[in-house]
């Protein structure tokens, strides 16, 4: 699971959970894989992100190094900034671990890089 995905996921499917965001990350295996840098795409995705959530998520798994805490107002022209955002958004991958709902504490496992957001039949009744 990439951090761009984490930035968009919620656990509001759970009964009684209002926003279910952001999910906490517990990672037991994180890997870095190289992904082609595409500044246009990164520029386009930045306005869709919750930057604070991204920064905290990166920090919680030990990969916030060099990532600014706030968005540079002229980020489109700042290649250095875009490259850092690119790395954190697309290259850092949580392979094994789990996501935790901030309201209920329900855990969702991540295995082989794929989060499992399924509930049990008892939870959807």
């Amino acid at each position: 699971m990439k951090l761009i995905t984490h930035n968009m996921l919620t656990s509001k499917c759970l009964k009684g959970v209002v926003t279910g965001y952001p999910l906490a990350i517990n990672a037991t295996d994180v890997k870095i894989s190289e992904v082609d840098f595409n500044p246009e795409f990164i520029s386009r995705i930045i306005p869709k992100l919750d930057w604070e959530v991204l920064w905290k998520a990166a920090e919680s798994i030990g990969h916030s190094e060099g990532l600014p805490q706030t968005i540079d107002p002229k980020f489109e022209d700042n290649e250095e900034f875009l490259r850092k955002a690119h790395k954190v958004l697309l290259e850092v991958e949580v392979e094994e671990g789990y996501l935790t709902c901030p309201e209920s504490g329900r855990q969702f496992p991540i295995s082989k890089g794929i989060p499992n957001m399924l509930l049990t039949e008892a939870e959807v009744q």
Binding site: T5, L9, T10, C13, P115, M117
Partner: peptide, 14 residues
């Protein structure tokens, strides 16, 4: 980007 195991009948995305 990613694939996620989830049930489309329930909300998941922000």
């Amino acid at each position: 980007l990613d694939v996620v195991v989830s049930d489309f009948s329930l909300p998941m995305w922000r």
